[in-house]
Design a binder for these strands. Structure first.
Lengths: 219, 219
DNA sequence: AAAAATTTTTAGGCATGACTAAAAATATAA
DNA sequence: TTATATTTTTAGTCATGCCTAAAAATTTTT
C-alpha cells in the first residue's frame, strides 16, 4: 500500500518544480525529461492520484504542497551532493551533474545530514544555485543576468545556470565561477556578445551565455 | 540492444559470488536474496542468456568469467563505499551496509577512483573483508575463526563476517574490530561461548558469533 | 523400485514506466 | 465560423522483474 517513492517520480517532481510556478504544459515536461508526451500524461495521472500534483487535463500541472516538498528534498540532495563532490572529492565542475542525478535518489537522511554538516550547511552550491533547507525554505536567488549590467560595471558572479559540460569547461578555464569578480568591458549591439575582463585577457561571452550567468554589482 | 546492467542483475551476481565457488542452488539464492525460487529461476535464464552465468536446469548456477568480474566490481564498490562512509563521513559500523547496498549500483568509475585514492587504495574494508582490485584480484582472506584458537592465545582480530546491526553495535561497544588485540580467556565445552579479554572486563561471545569472527595469532 | 517428499521450473499475473499510433481537444488561420 | 494545425490524451505494447499456483524433475524413504 505505502510504496516507497520511485526515482521516476522524483525526477518528474523535480522537473515540474524547475519549470516554474505556473501551469506546466505536458509538452514542456516531456521536452525537459526527454520522454514522449504520452508517457508524461500517464505519469501525471499517477502523480495526481498520489496527491503530489494538481493536474487539469489539457490545461497543465503544478505541484501540491506535498509534491513541492518532495521536489525540494530531491533538489536539496542534488545540490548538496554536487557541492560535496567538488569540495570533498575534487570533482571538476562539469563532472558533478550526472553523478548527482544518480546519487540524489539513493542517499539516506543520514548521508544528507552528514555531508551537509561537513560542508557547514551551505546555502548555495558550486553553480550558485540555492540549496533548499530541510524545512523546504529556499535561500534567495542572488544576482541578475549579466546582460542587465551596463558596460564598465564591476560585477561579482553569483550563479551559472548552465550545465553543458562544454560550457562549464570553458567557464572554468576562465575562472568564471560564483565569487569571481570581473568588469563588463564591452557589449555588442543587437543581442551581440558581451566581453568580461579580469585584468588578464578579455573573455567573450555569447548573448545566450551572458543571459545564463548571474552577477551582483561589486565595488 | 546493449542495455546497461540493472541493479537487480548486479544483486544476483553479487549473491551468487558470495555463496561460493560451487554450483549454487536456486533455493540458496532465493533465500539469500529473499525472492521466491520461481523468480530466481526466471532471472537465471536471463543471466545465462547474457553470458554472465552458466546455468544447468535443476542442477545449479555459477558465474562465468564475465559474471565474476562484474560481481567483483559491485563488491569493490560496496566495500570501498563502506570504508569511505566510516573513514570520511564518520558513519558507525552498523550504518554502512544498507547505505552501501544502494550506492554501489549508481556510483561512477570516477567516484570509485576518487574515493579509492583518497583512502589510499585500501585492501580491506572496516569489517576486514578484502576489497577486490580493479583487475578482479581479491586480496587474501586474513585469519581463522576465533573458535580455532586455543585458550590463552593472544590474537589480533582480522575480520567480522556479520552485518546485523545489533551484533555490530555490541562488538563496537567492546572495541571488537579488525586490528583489536585480545586474549582468549576461556571456552566453554560443547560448543559453548568463548570469552575474550583485553585487560578490562571479559567479553563473552556465543559460539555462533565466535565462528563469525576471524583472527590471527599475535605476540 | 515404487511411493512420498522436496526442489525446481513452467505458466500466468501484476506493477512500473517507457513507447507508438490513433483519437480527441484546443488553438490558429482563413 | 469553419477549416487546419497543434497539443494532449487514450488505447494498446513492451521490457523488467517480482509474485503465486501448478506441473515436472529430483531426491529421499520405505
Amino acid at each position: 500500500m505505502e510504496n516507497p517513492i520511485s526515482s521516476a517520480v522524483e525526477d518528474y517532481l523535480k522537473a515540474i518544480f524547475e519549470l516554474g510556478e505556473k501551469d506546466i504544459k505536458t509538452q514542456d515536461l516531456a521536452d525537459s525529461l526527454k520522454f514522449s508526451p504520452a508517457s508524461v500524461t500517464g505519469m501525471l495521472k499517477k502523480l495526481s492520484k498520489l496527491n503530489l500534483v494538481s493536474y487539469k487535463k489539457y490545461y497543465g500541472v503544478s505541484l501540491t504542497k506535498q509534491g513541492r516538498l518532495m521536489a525540494l528534498e530531491t533538489i536539496r540532495h542534488h545540490r548538496l551532493i554536487e557541492t560535496y563532490l567538488m569540495q570533498a572529492l575534487g570533482y571538476e565542475w562539469h563532472e558533478v551533474h550526472d553523478e548527482a542525478d544518480r546519487l540524489e535518489h539513493v542517499i539516506s537522511e543520514n548521508f544528507e545530514e552528514r555531508i551537509a554538516k561537513l560542508l557547514g550547511n551551505p546555502s548555495y552550491d558550486p553553480h550558485g544555485d540555492p540549496i533548499p533547507c530541510k524545512d523546504g525554505i529556499m535561500p534567495q536567488l542572488l544576482g541578475q543576468p549579466l546582460i542587465d549590467f551596463a558596460v564598465g560595471t564591476n560585477i561579482k558572479l553569483t550563479r551559472i545556470t548552465k550545465q553543458d559540460s562544454e560550457v562549464l569547461i570553458y567557464l572554468a578555464e576562465n575562472e568564471l565561477k560564483p565569487g569571481g569578480v570581473f568588469t563588463i568591458e564591452a557589449r555588442a549591439p543587437f543581442n551581440g556578445p558581451l566581453t568580461l575582463n579580469k585584468g588578464k585577457k578579455p573573455i567573450p561571452l555569447s548573448y545566450q551565455l551572458a543571459k545564463a550567468i548571474y552577477a551582483q554589482a561589486a565595488i
